[in-house]
Design a protein around this nucleic acid. Structure first.
Lengths: 154, 154
DNA sequence: AAAATACATATTGTGCACGATTAAATCGTG
DNA sequence: CACGATTTAATCGTGCACAATATGTATTTT
């Protein structure tokens, strides 16, 4: 970028092209992940966003709706019906926190916790599909996190 | 990865963690882009996917629905209603190709073409928000494209 | 203690994404 | 020419994402 006299920043046409290519690449890669996971997740009856919720629950055990929303950048309008379906599928339980009844605590059922084992199989399949080694994956993860933080700071 | 005697491939726990972190990072960065663009696109009355469609039209002038779908990895079930809204907004025109009436050709109206100028303003705002220089953007774009191709090849 | 405020979640409505199905047009081959 | 296969869009149903709104609960203030 080149600074103009008035302190504003000029953006070249190449930069504009690059930026549109980047935002499309991110959009497109997210779709590609979704599609790659779909046939495998279908077998265990999960959608991709549901799988992401299960991932954080397998990690932490039980969490409030709000905390899940913070980890996944989703609001309650998205999570409420999604969690309702996971509850109907018998994978999670929902209960008001006795300490603070505004909060709903999401916990894994035995069935939901047991499903974690099946995930190893899922990841084996996808991990190979990425065609990335560990260093590449870590590098990409870090760059994307940095990008996300910058965009969120706005 | 370490090869087992039976020819299958073992994936370590660290790799599984990395992979889930990567697919979440992609998912999350896509949301971040979407949110960053939203307030600006609201002013010109476009959603983010609509903006991506307009991007390829500004690039190419006019395209068939199928071609747009290939560029954006979207099928007609997604594009048809989206294009219908762009048509109602007076930004594009839709007409059957006289050469092959199976195809619908999408073209920019004067209003739609004129909107391209406003996009420079949008990109100025977002480009700075990414906090990436050109080399970083290009690198990230290439890595994501490679990832996408690998996942699609499956 | 009562009112005001802030917070947590649910509800509703719109738009996107995708699979499955349908319908119409084209093409290939006999 | 005719028949079947393929291509291209549109339509329908389900689920995600989000804004706006509503409801109810806890905290703070008076």
């Amino acid at each position: 970028m080149t600074d103009k006299a008035d302190g504003q920043t000029m953006i070249s046409d190449e930069e504009k092209r690059l930026e549109s290519q980047l935002c499309f690449a991110v959009y497109s890669a997210a779709h590609a992940f979704n599609r790659a996971y779909k046939p495998i997740l279908d077998r265990v009856g999960l959608t991709y966003p549901q799988y992401l919720v299960m991932l954080v629950l397998w990690e932490k055990g039980c969490l409030s709706v709000k905390t899940i929303g913070e980890k996944l950048d989703l609001d309650s309008g998205t999570l409420s019906p999604l969690l309702k379906r996971l509850e109907q599928a018998g994978l999670i339980g929902r209960a008001r926190d006795p300490k603070d009844e505004r909060q709903v605590i999401i916990s894994l059922t035995e069935k939901g916790a047991g499903m974690k084992c099946q995930v190893g199989v899922i990841m084996d399949a996808i991990g190979q599909a990425t065609g990335c080694d560990m260093a590449e994956m870590a590098n990409l993860r870090d760059q994307l996190q940095k990008l996300k933080v910058n965009l969120a700071a706005e």
